[in-house]
Amino acid sequence: MSNNNPAPEPHAAGTYSTDIPTAAATDLAGPAPARVGTVVWGLIVLALAALIIVAQLGFVTLNGTYVLIGLMIGAGAALVVGGVLSARKRDNEPTTGKS
C-alpha cells in the first residue's frame, strides 16, 4: 500500500488490510488449548443430561442429593487434577533466580 493512496487495498479474500498489526496477526503459537474449567463444566452438563435420560427411561431411580454430591466431588477432583497437570506443563522452563 502506498502512502499516496488513502483507501486500503483489498486482499484476495475481499478483506482490507491495515498497517496496524493485531494480536492475532502477531501470535504465532497457534490455537490455545481448551481450559480445564471449560472441559469440566462440559462434562458436568453431559453427565447431568445422561442421568436425566436414564432416570426418564426408568432404568434406575435417582436421588437428586446424591447425584449433586457425586457431581460436585467429581468436578472438584477434575479441577484440582487438571490445574496441577496444567501447572506442571507450564513450569518446565528453567528459572533465572530473579523474582
Rank of each mutant, 00 (worst) to 15 (best):
M1L: 09
M1K: 04
S2T: 10
S2N: 12
A7Q: 06
P8L: 05
P8M: 04
P8E: 15
P8Q: 06
P8A: 12
E9C: 01
P10K: 00
H11I: 01
H11L: 12
H11C: 03
A12S: 14
A12R: 10
A12L: 10
A13R: 12
T15D: 07
Y16C: 01
S17L: 08
D19A: 13
I20D: 14
P21C: 02
T22Q: 09
A23Y: 13
A23C: 07
A23E: 13
A23P: 02
A23M: 11
A25R: 08
T26D: 03
D27I: 00
L28I: 07
A29V: 05
A29I: 03
A29L: 10
G30Q: 10
P31G: 09
P31F: 02
A32L: 11
A32E: 12
P33Y: 10
A34D: 14
A34L: 12
R35A: 14
T38Q: 08
V39L: 14
W41Y: 08
W41L: 09
W41Q: 09
G42S: 08
I44L: 13
V45W: 01
A47C: 13
A49V: 14
A49T: 15
A49E: 00
A50R: 07
A50D: 09
L51V: 05
I52P: 01
I52M: 15
I52Q: 11
I52T: 15
V54D: 11
A55M: 10
Q56P: 02
Q56A: 15
Q56V: 11
Q56D: 07
L57M: 15
G58K: 09
G58W: 06
G58F: 09
F59P: 03
F59Y: 14
F59L: 15
V60Q: 12
V60I: 15
T61S: 12
L62D: 03
N63I: 04
T65M: 07
L68P: 02
L68W: 14
G70R: 06
G70I: 04
G70Y: 05
L71G: 04
L71I: 13
M72H: 05
I73N: 10
I73L: 15
G74K: 00
G74V: 02
A75E: 00
G76V: 06
A78T: 08
V80P: 03
G82C: 02
G82Q: 05
G82H: 04
G83L: 02
V84E: 06
L85Q: 14
L85C: 02
S86N: 13
R88H: 03
K89C: 00
N92D: 04
E93S: 07
T95R: 12
T95C: 03
T95N: 05
T96W: 01
G97R: 04
K98E: 09
S99R: 15
S99Y: 13
S99A: 15
S99H: 04
